[in-house]
Design a protein around this nucleic acid. Structure first.
Ligand SMILES: NC(=O)c1ccc[n+]([C@@H]2O[C@H](COP(=O)([O-])OP(=O)(O)OC[C@H]3O[C@@H](n4cnc5c(N)ncnc54)[C@H](O)[C@@H]3O)[C@@H](O)[C@H]2O)c1
Ligand SMILES: NC(=O)c1ccc[n+]([C@@H]2O[C@H](COP(=O)([O-])OP(=O)(O)OC[C@H]3O[C@@H](n4cnc5c(N)ncnc54)[C@H](O)[C@@H]3O)[C@@H](O)[C@H]2O)c1
Lengths: 229, 229
DNA sequence: GTGCATTCGATATTAAAATATCGAAATACT
DNA sequence: AGTATTTCGATATTTTAATATCGAATGCAC
């Protein structure tokens, strides 16, 4: 199975999102050109990305939307559900338990785990929450290989180690902690800090000569808004 | 103000996280070499990243941790708080309202907004929630320029447009929707789908010849675990 | 003080990603 | 039917990012 570049993998869900929209609108085909316009990704890049999923289009027409969705979904292994355990049923954790969209993306959270004894045995959005001592055993018995990590930052490393020792092969890490685990464990960080860093800096780069700039922009915007009327 | 590459910006918070740890342990200096070991980023890359923030180190010693933190934080504009509004106080939205870590990263959510009338006037984790009709007015009066978007996907585009019309200059977008807004508005996506796509595919690439492979790995792991004892 | 090891930071090389170019295939139009 | 036009997909070029190399600076051991 060929290795697809990370950046391509990160673009594929974007295309999918648009494709679902078109499908609902009853559209039948779509061109790479159009996808490029909508995503801001270069036309040739879209073509390369699409071709990596293994689908072929027809000249002048483009791609059959149904085929393209099918191809991207199976490329990402989103066609059938993988089971996952979530550890840390706090604010973020329980919001994920209720996030039904994940099922449409191949992820089925079959149980939550938390060190807080008052949560053990409860249901959160229909998902059972267990105490931590059940983790290793259930993990092996149910052959679950994906772990979602939403514990406090200072508990992240030890929890990750427990996961790995219990048979977890891939960790979806929502904590800001940099996990140190065996190198053949797949760790994928959902890095909100990283994203916030980019937003923060880009805003500074654009306007922070000393925030007077922002007022200028405000004035400019008001002006053009008036002109538009 | 120079433009720092996205990938560098995304690595800076990683370094910071480690640096906070060292600072607490009472350490005084750190070398790029050590940061490279811990993050998996190449040593020369770490040096480049660090030098982009404007700090200089001393040979043989490395960098003063205090200076480095200071330098990265001010590079990301995390030293002083920017005000933000959050729209969509649902599962994810309210989990963000309670996420105090954001304040340490320069972001101060000063109010939430929601179309659900039963939420108007309530406090969520100490943050006031307003009805949507107050958004434009408060945005201008309080000179808030950052908007956090956590409404359902089908409401994302229209809400983004409201934000832009109200003076928002940067949108932190947690929805899977690809926003179409004026090009000088900064949009930063927290793309969980993208992250899940990478995790999913990498897992397939590694083990999906037909999932027998995973059992093999299990056996292998058990074996080596025994050997370790 | 002198050599030695370490680390910085600048410059060069390599690798990877994004963009441009071009011919061929398919449809629509004359 | 023939021609123009759109779009695909393969190949080349350019740009950007990652890695390697090297000299200089600093502190430490002797
Ligand atoms: N809240 C957010 O919006 C948000 C956003 C981004 C990242 N995060 C990160 O997600 C993580 C969780 O944040 P949160 O706001 O949901 O915190 P939280 O305190 O609301 O929830 C943490 C949960 O983990 C449980 N827990 C603590 N130690 C545990 C352990 N050793 N084993 C198992 N369970 C344990 C707690 O009982 C609690 O239920 C943090 O690392 C945070 O940095 C949160
Ligand atoms: N829940 C998660 O863990 C999670 C994870 C990743 C992404 N997301 C995305 O975040 C968004 C919110 O997800 P959620 O699970 O919190 O949903 P939710 O239904 O729990 O919350 C949505 C909130 O938005 C409000 N709302 C709806 N329309 C609105 C409008 N036009 N203006 C203002 N407020 C409006 C609703 O009243 C509700 O309070 C979705 O786009 C989802 O795809 C959620």
């Amino acid at each position: 199975m060929i290795s697809i570049p990370v950046l391509t993998l990160k673009r594929l869900p974007q295309y999918l999102e648009l494709l679902y929209g078109f499908e609902q609108e009853g559209q039948d085909t779509i061109s790479a050109t159009r996808l490029a316009e909508l995503t801001g990704v270069h036309m040739t890049q879209v073509r390369k990305d699409i071709s990596l999923t293994g689908v072929v289009g027809t000249p002048k027409v483009g791609h059959k939307i149904k085929d393209l969705i099918e191809s991207i979904e199976s490329c990402l292994n989103w066609k059938d559900l993988s089971s996952a355990f979530l550890v840390g049923v706090g604010r973020l954790g329980s919001s994920l338990l209720g996030y039904s969209e994940l099922k449409r993306k191949g992820l089925n959270i079959v149980a939550g785990f938390d060190s807080d004894p008052s949560l053990a045995g409860t249901l959160v959005d229909g998902v059972i929450v267990h105490s931590m001592d059940k983790f290793a055993n259930l993990c092996q018995r149910m052959k679950v290989h994906i772990g979602i990590l939403t514990v406090p930052a200072d508990q992240a490393q030890s929890t990750a180690e427990l996961m790995v020792a219990s048979g977890i092969l891939a960790i979806w890490n929502f904590t800001p902690t940099l996990l140190q685990v065996d190198e053949n464990i797949i760790v994928e960080d959902v890095d909100m800090s990283a994203s916030l860093a980019v937003l923060s800096r880009r805003l500074s780069e654009k306007y922070d000569h000393d925030s007077k700039q922002i007022s200028k922009i405000d004035n400019y915007k008001n002006k053009t808004d008036q002109e538009k009327q």
